[in-house]
Amino acid sequence: MSKLRILYVASEINPFLQTSEVADFVRQLPQGMQERGMEIRILVPRFGLINERKNRLHEVVRLSGINIAVGEEEKPLTIKVASIPNAKLQVYFIDNEDYFHRKSVFFDKENNFYEDNDERAIFFCKGVIETVRKLGWTPDIVHCNDWMTSLIPMYLKTTYKNDPLFKNTKTVFTVYNNPFKHKFDGDLLGKVKMMDIDDSMLVNLQSADYEGFIKIGIEYSDAIIKAEDGVNDNLNTLLEEFDSEKKIDTIEKDDNLLDSYFNLYNELVS
């Protein structure tokens, strides 16, 4: 069997940024899969809290220069890269001055949720796919983590379904207990839309909130994983809505974690 190619997408990764358990998970799992012979790529946003000089980020000019449409606007995409210390792994960072240069992640200094977090997520999800296209790299699995990555499975099954790079790609979506209470104003569905996406495909996103993003991620993914730690009742209720149509697994954080994911990826591809 040729080595599997796994793309990990998340909002954070250690040691560059940690605000939740996502950062540790996305640090450990890719290395474990690489050590089992898989080929790995990792993409995260370049939030302003990430110190470029300290972490030795540098721009990848050949990958930068794409414009990403978010609603009526187009925003330039910059790609930066850095290596994880003591690991043979590189991390690609999606950057844009308007969306990611503020010195915080999702909340401002007064703990208000940023009104444009929906646009930041849309830009990031589209930017991830366009970056992989520019790399010319075909992922067998795209493993999306948390709400900010939840549009990627839908885009891959609609707008990009005939792209030779993605025609056989499977998606995994891991749901974490990182909810927010904000409801997005404005034309969220209009901003999310791309070619081959109409309103009927976005019903689960109509609530324009955290649950909407999670539901759209679940709907279009090939495998759904519930992060083990402290999933609250609201999230469990939401996941139960999909019980009849989707298999939702919990992979325990024990000695067999890496083996469980290794087996999951191989099952999906075969």
Rank of each mutant, 00 (worst) to 15 (best):
residue 98 D to H: 15
residue 126 K to D: 02
residue 103 K to F: 08
residue 106 F to Y: 05
residue 115 E to Q: 09
residue 129 I to H: 14
residue 72 E to P: 11
residue 109 K to V: 04
residue 85 P to D: 02
residue 105 V to C: 07
residue 110 E to V: 11
residue 129 I to W: 10
residue 83 S to I: 07
residue 115 E to P: 09
residue 63 L to R: 06
residue 95 D to F: 14
residue 120 R to W: 09
residue 117 N to A: 08
residue 106 F to S: 04
residue 65 G to H: 10
residue 133 R to M: 03
residue 80 K to R: 13
residue 85 P to Y: 00
residue 88 K to E: 09
residue 111 N to P: 09
residue 102 R to V: 05
residue 114 Y to S: 05
residue 82 A to M: 06
residue 116 D to P: 04
residue 116 D to K: 09
residue 132 V to E: 07
residue 64 S to H: 02
residue 67 N to L: 14
residue 96 N to T: 07
residue 108 D to N: 03
residue 82 A to F: 06
residue 115 E to I: 14
residue 131 T to G: 00
residue 126 K to W: 01
residue 133 R to A: 11
residue 124 F to G: 02
residue 129 I to M: 03
residue 65 G to R: 04
residue 104 S to G: 10
residue 109 K to H: 02
residue 94 I to Y: 04
residue 99 Y to T: 06
residue 109 K to F: 12
residue 76 P to H: 04
residue 101 H to T: 14
residue 90 Q to F: 12
residue 130 E to M: 00
residue 78 T to G: 13
residue 81 V to G: 11
residue 127 G to Q: 02
residue 127 G to T: 03
residue 103 K to R: 10
residue 83 S to Y: 10
residue 103 K to N: 15
residue 92 Y to P: 00
residue 97 E to S: 15
residue 66 I to E: 10
residue 133 R to G: 06
residue 133 R to S: 06
residue 121 A to F: 15
residue 90 Q to S: 03
residue 93 F to E: 03
